[in-house]
Computed example of a mutant assay.
Amino acid sequence: MEQRIGSSSQPLEGAGFDPAFIPGLTSPASEREEDAKAEEPEKPAGSPVVEDTAPEADEAPEAEEPAPDGPVFEASDRRARILADHRGVRLRLDDQECEFRWDEIGAVETETARFGKRYTVTVHTPDRRWYPIEIEAPSRSRFAEWDTELDKVLDAYFDEGDAQETETGAGADRKADADAE
């Protein structure tokens, strides 16, 4: 009797198994990798490898936008990181990342644990979603420093007039935090 090594079943596809799957819009990653391999021409053995590094005529070189001299807030621990600068707020936890431009943010809320050294930053969006991240501080004395640094960034880049929040909405959380200090 013959036995095959490995699975003979194909991976399942669809929204039930991949939340990012949109039929007809994108193909699964495995198919894209196979297509890329199929399009790559095979080179005969012994031929020299020459790579074309010159940009094409219709392709303009990408210029990185210069960072202004404004304030920057960054806090991180072994798993989590938050960075707030002129571009917006970026959160990272392990291998997951999300980025919010300033026009996508309704409010930014900070919270400290009563006991322990956890500093929580929550980004609220105008469509009533929130994205919290906890950072473990080296000591509780860092909380005041982080609050001051984050307030400088928010004052410089966050325009509350564009947030379209009312005093009873998520925008009031940041104002309440600022008034409590």
Score class of each variant (00 low, 15 high):
Arg4Ile: 10
Arg4Ser: 10
Ile5Thr: 07
Ser8Gly: 09
Ser9Gln: 11
Leu12Gly: 15
Phe17Leu: 02
Pro19Phe: 08
Phe21Tyr: 15
Phe21Ala: 14
Pro23Asn: 08
Thr26Arg: 13
Ser27Ala: 09
Pro28Glu: 03
Ala29Leu: 14
Ser30Asp: 12
Glu33Ala: 15
Glu34Leu: 14
Ala36Met: 08
Glu39Tyr: 07
Glu42Lys: 13
Lys43Phe: 06
Gly46Trp: 03
Val50Asp: 05
Glu51Met: 07
Pro55Thr: 05
Pro55Lys: 09
Pro55Glu: 01
Glu56Val: 04
Asp58Phe: 08
Ala60Tyr: 14
Ala60Gln: 09
Pro61Asn: 04
Pro61Glu: 05
Glu64Phe: 12
Pro68Lys: 00
Asp69Gly: 13
Gly70Lys: 02
Val72Lys: 14
Glu74Val: 09
Arg79Lys: 15
Arg79Cys: 08
Arg81Asp: 02
Arg81Lys: 13
Leu83Trp: 05
Leu83Val: 14
Ala84Phe: 05
His86Asn: 08
His86Phe: 14
His86Gln: 10
Arg90Tyr: 09
Arg92Ile: 05
Leu93Gly: 09
Asp95Cys: 02
Glu97Tyr: 02
Asp103Glu: 14
Glu104Phe: 01
Gly106Pro: 12
Gly106Phe: 07
Ala107Cys: 14
Val108Cys: 09
Glu109Phe: 11
Glu109Gln: 15
Glu111Asn: 12
Arg118Ala: 08
Val121Glu: 02
Thr122Lys: 07
Val123Ala: 01
Arg129Lys: 15
Arg129Gln: 15
Tyr131Cys: 01
Ala137Pro: 05
Arg140Asn: 07
Arg140Tyr: 02
Arg140Asp: 06
Arg140Lys: 13
Arg142Glu: 06
Phe143Val: 03
Thr148Asn: 11
Thr148Pro: 04
Leu150Pro: 14
Val153Lys: 10
Leu154Met: 15
Leu154Gly: 12
Leu154Cys: 10
Ala156His: 08
Tyr157Gly: 02
Phe158Asp: 01
Asp159Ser: 10
Glu160Asp: 10
Gly161Ile: 03
Ala163Ile: 04
Glu165Gly: 12
Thr166Asn: 14
Thr168Cys: 03
Ala170Thr: 06
Gly171His: 11
Gly171Thr: 06
Arg174Val: 00
Arg174Leu: 11
Lys175His: 10
Lys175Ile: 06
Asp177Asn: 06
Asp177Phe: 02
Ala178Val: 11
Ala178Leu: 11
Asp179Ile: 00
Asp179Val: 03
Glu181Asp: 09
